[in-house]
């Protein structure tokens, strides 16, 4: 356990969706801390609940069909889930901002770039004059590396390339200096050379604005390895493993994490003749296993796995895992009581 007070503390978050085939528990008991100034990667495959987690933090879950069924999200001494809509609106964009996967559709097509950047400033700092807002917008567009920002201000999103649009999204997200930036698959839709530039840009801007943290949500384990300080691996709506980035890649503990890392083809090193695979596919969200969510695909499954969900325990300093194979070292205070093993 670290001494620093987390910037964002998620406890027992459950976000459910009512669908025709029943209740989909997209996020089902999620605990996660984001520390000040860190880049935390939240990794998972489609359906793991990573994007729903991100949207839940700012209460952007479309309701209906979704709703946050339980949990607490502590930020600056307040539980975001109990705030009034008015108060959460003051947090959105100002304290916690967000960028999304699709730079092509995430900007309003009928408003100019300038209007969309200025709107962020004028919404949260209504005392600002339009001239001030405009010059601050040009300033932030310059910072995110947009050439000729004064001209770009008067252009529409469709006149910009995908990479440029994502830079605009970053500019909008960072113009008010939020303490947390949530980036949901920010580079997935971009070409690999543009992806590298956007990731560099995000890290560079973060380095310049001391104290800001980034929650990077992605399916790409390589992106995480290059950009994050810590990594949380999600599966079946729950965190399965959290560790500093080096620990996770050097010593992955959860069979799912190990399976994911082994299944990646590499651009360097020796070429494998055959990729290692994780058998099966992600279980149906309406029919999750009762025990460990990964038990249906796990090669190392043994008798408690099907029926008892293991707790998330700290098995090494700052390295937490949710797996019956790994128990907390005796004498260390467990993240949760390890009594499940006794059954």
């Amino acid at each position: 356990m670290t001494a620093t007070q987390p910037l964002l503390q998620i406890r027992g978050l459950r976000t459910h969706f009512s669908t025709e085939s029943g209740v989909a528990k997209a996020v089902d008991g999620l605990d996660l801390d984001v520390r000040p100034g860190e880049v935390l990667g939240l990794v998972g495959e489609s359906g793991s609940g990573k994007s729903v987690t991100a949207l839940s933090i700012l209460r952007l879950i479309p309701d209906p069909p979704g709703h946050i069924a339980a949990g607490e999200i502590w930020f600056q001494g307040r539980d975001l889930l109990t705030l009034s809509w008015r108060d959460i609106r003051r947090i959105r964009g100002k304290e916690i901002s967000m960028i999304f996967q699709e730079p092509m559709t995430s900007l309003n097509p009928v408003f100019t770039i300038g209007r969309q950047v200025m709107e962020m400033i004028l919404t949260h700092e209504p005392a600002t004059s339009r001239d001030q807002a405009r010059s601050r917008s040009i300033q932030i567009l310059t910072e995110v590396g947009i050439p000729d920002p004064a001209t770009r201000m008067d252009q529409y999103p469709h006149e910009l390339s995908g990479g440029m649009r994502q830079r605009v999204m970053i500019a909008i997200a960072l113009v008010l200096n939020p303490s947390l930036l949530i980036a949901d698959e920010p580079t997935t839709a971009l070409d690999v050379t543009i992806q590298a530039q956007i990731l560099d840009l995000m890290l560079e801007l973060k380095a310049r604005r001391a104290g800001g943290a980034i929650l990077l949500i992605t399916h790409n384990l390589a992106v995480v390895a290059e950009t994050c300080d810590r990594v949380a691996v999600m599966y079946g709506g729950k965190i399965q493993e959290v560790a500093p980035v080096r620990d996770l890649y050097r010593n992955p503990l959860h069979p799912y994490t190990r399976g994911l890392l082994a299944s990646l083809p590499r651009v360097d090193g020796e070429r494998a003749t055959r990729l290692t695979t994780i058998p099966g596919s992600v279980p149906d969200i309406h029919n999750m296993p009762t025990g460990c969510k990964f038990s249906t695909r796990c090669a190392e499954r043994f008798e408690p796995c099907d029926s008892i969900e293991p707790p998330l325990v700290e098995v090494a300093p700052d390295h937490l895992v949710r797996c019956h194979l790994h128990e907390a070292p005796p004498g260390t205070p467990a993240h949760q009581p390890a009594s499940a093993h006794d059954v």
Partner: peptide, 15 residues
């Protein structure tokens, strides 16, 4: 239901 509406909400705009 469009992405830009989600962006607008995330910016803290009123409904």
């Amino acid at each position: 239901g469009q992405d830009y509406v989600r962006t607008a909400f995330a910016k803290g705009l009123s409904e």
